[in-house]
Amino acid sequence: MKYESLKYKLLRSFAINKTRLFLLLLMLTLVLVFRFSYNFAGDYSMYYYIISGIAKTNINFLNVSMIVSYNIFIVCLSIELCITYKKISYNLLPRLSSKKIFNNMYGENLILISIYSLFFYLLCSLLVGFQEFNFLTLLLIVLKNIYISTIAITLYEFFKKYYVILMALIIILPIYFNYISLIYITDFNVQLKGVVILLFNIILYSISYFNRRYLYEYKD
């Protein structure tokens, strides 16, 4: 398919943006601040969860700041990708169907979010000497981040004028979701959580797909 080349070029243009580099540096600073201010007391798994934007136990100001910053970072990436697509959609549309544009955008979002999730997980693992490094947890984190970024894309059109509400929803929903699944449903294993989040992703993707005209239709 000819439009494959678009994916690479847009992603390249996206990766070198100054705002994104600034956000990335901010996140790295937070990771380091967190690493050197947190008393692990032997519980490395909690560190992994918090650093990955998932609440577990012992919620305090620093933990919540970290979780919120991480989720905002992921959401901003996806919203910005969406805005980029919306911006150039008038030039893409006569050449490419809206289905292909949407799939391209979603595909790029998956790649982008997966790369960043992997990057942070590896960075965090490195900082704690690869204690409790776990591929299933990594997969769950990637899925969870795709989940919040899909919420962002799905709700973008509905909430763009109420950005604060959108942000609040995106930050609260995954925390709430993970809080329930990780604390109250203790026999809810990692694989099952993965399947549930995957199902959420598929539902959200479908909603977003059928509403894809938001990428170019005039609404104001």
């Binding site: 243009s13 150039i88 030039n91």
Partner: peptide, 14 residues
């Protein structure tokens, strides 16, 4: 068909 609308609808980094 090709159309030209807002002249800012391009990628600034390219």
């Amino acid at each position: 068909t090709r159309a030209m609308f807002d002249s800012s609808n391009y990628l600034n980094d390219l």
